[in-house]
Nucleic acid binder design. Sequence first.
DNA 1: TTGAAAGCGCTAACAC
DNA 2: GTGTTAGCGCTTTCAA
Lengths: 351, 351
Amino acid sequence: MHDVARLAGVSTMTVSNVVNARAGVSDPVRRRVLAAIADSGYQVNVSARNLRSGRTGVLGLAVPEVDRPYFGQLAARMISRAARLGYRMVVEQTAGRLDGELAAIESSRHQMYDGLVLCAVGIGPDDVRSSPPATPVVVMGERPFEGTVDHVAMPNREGARTAVLHLAGRGSRAIALVGGGARNRDDAFTLREAGYRDALAELGLVAHPELAVRLPTATSAGGREAVAELVRRGTPFDAVFAVTDTVALGVLRGLADAGLAVPGAVRVVGYDDLDEARYSVPSLTSVAPDHDWMAGTALDLLLARLSGARDAPPVADHIAPFRLAVRESSGRAADQHRSPAGPTMPSAGPP
Amino acid sequence: MHDVARLAGVSTMTVSNVVNARAGVSDPVRRRVLAAIADSGYQVNVSARNLRSGRTGVLGLAVPEVDRPYFGQLAARMISRAARLGYRMVVEQTAGRLDGELAAIESSRHQMYDGLVLCAVGIGPDDVRSSPPATPVVVMGERPFEGTVDHVAMPNREGARTAVLHLAGRGSRAIALVGGGARNRDDAFTLREAGYRDALAELGLVAHPELAVRLPTATSAGGREAVAELVRRGTPFDAVFAVTDTVALGVLRGLADAGLAVPGAVRVVGYDDLDEARYSVPSLTSVAPDHDWMAGTALDLLLARLSGARDAPPVADHIAPFRLAVRESSGRAADQHRSPAGPTMPSAGPP
DNA sequence: TTGAAAGCGCTAACAC
DNA sequence: GTGTTAGCGCTTTCAA
């Protein structure tokens, strides 16, 4: 910048003004400066600017695994929305470990960002209380955060319940659960399992322990293996509720391995409504949280904190609305359950 | 830091030394400083440190779309490898547009990073020549870069050729192509199409124009629609080579729509060897570039430039080795084609 | 072993 | 409209 100033025969301040397209620079001077910039190949130093201005114009999104389709699709949504609002957004990976999440929330780690959206798996309200973030943070994830930070969650329990009721409505009675390894009492998989039990109870069906398989990780490989395990156990089943679509796709594969027709012999419902659910054979019925709503809400909350609006609402847990995307894997007739409460449902869910 | 220094009754320099675990600080002083840090909740200011040191310890990975499984899986590989080497790596999205890629390569944009891995779609050697990056850049993508930057590419033409030869080996003769919209003369989809033609020529088969469908975007939706189009055209076909696995999964879905059995009536091969290829029904035969090799090579090249090693080899195009992952969609018998030339193959490929 | 001074590149605030 | 001054928070250098 010094060089540019010398080359153009002006002060660094004027260069700064030109670079930032500020008013109050005469046309001939501006032209001279621009020429000097082009000549010297000058580039603004972002670190210096950040140091001075205290902001970066960049938002962070921390996810457990960048290669999980759910997070990829979430990231794409958030990035394009952020771009529309004038922010750049970059993604980083926490590896789904508590230390990774704490590192992400740790201020020194994300001073690179003006704000952070953290997709949490391990972290909980106590962690936030013990190391409160210095920059605005919004958490997306399952665990209630009890007013420690803004929190956007899925309708885990309610969505799972709806899925199971749907299976029963189609005529299934022996509904298996393929679940995920619970990390804590209130993670997504545990909540979805609770929703599964809610529905069975409502239906007057017993939750046969033989019909529940819990996986160490929620992968397609696991889903496939879970079906093999169910077959080995020998208890007959005529439907499977899988805790995620990724698992459900593995379940479809496992059922194919076992020679079980879908939906003829076994109906299947997943959770997440990934793009992939449309294209599997058979296509996958899935609980479809409103992803756009989630991405939008998380970003809006973050930007509200960022702008430091005094009138910003107090931190709270927000739960996404959902619907059931009914496709081939659960049978023929069409029906759509919708969450009744509109954009933000109370945690308790609909009656 | 000032505050901490005052609190501990030392100079800021000593605080800096403690924070950076440098030698030459007596134990009692160190203890006092640490206590002061804890008390004041001090966090180093990353921008200031970057300004001073001229480096950030962060690498960037710019991909066209974060929600394409291929890029998600690539990112996961690169991030964990970078972490092992002591670097943090973040992902950003170029939206696959030339301006996005130029923005990413533009120095001011990635001064946040010590180096950048750019997965290019639109950008080419001329762009690089006209705006040479100020920090080290490695390009992953299809187009040859003619020695302008380090470049890691897939064996596009050779892999496609192998896929088609495999289909013919299984008995197919009317092999359809479901291709991607070409952006330029040497993008991945054009090269793969060339490989398809190479194989047909070798086999003495004609490339029937009716059997080639080019999609505007390489999506599952497109693959599905392409099959419908092939069926509409009425020219019989007994195999499909799809330019990516994502497209191929849509093709499988489209074939199911059309009531065509895979591999009974139509054999299918994709390209990329996504995780998903293992779990589709039927599972998908796919050209499998060595993804670990690609991620590793790209990162090694970047780090070599970063370290400023004078003995670093000149920039060059590197092409990944590959194999064919044979699964259900192409028939029964097992065989594995391997690229013969080892880790780095000349662009020309094997005879 | 510790500290003082200077400056990384930028910009807000104020003079001219 | 343009220039001067000062300082963001850190670290390199050199002196104590």
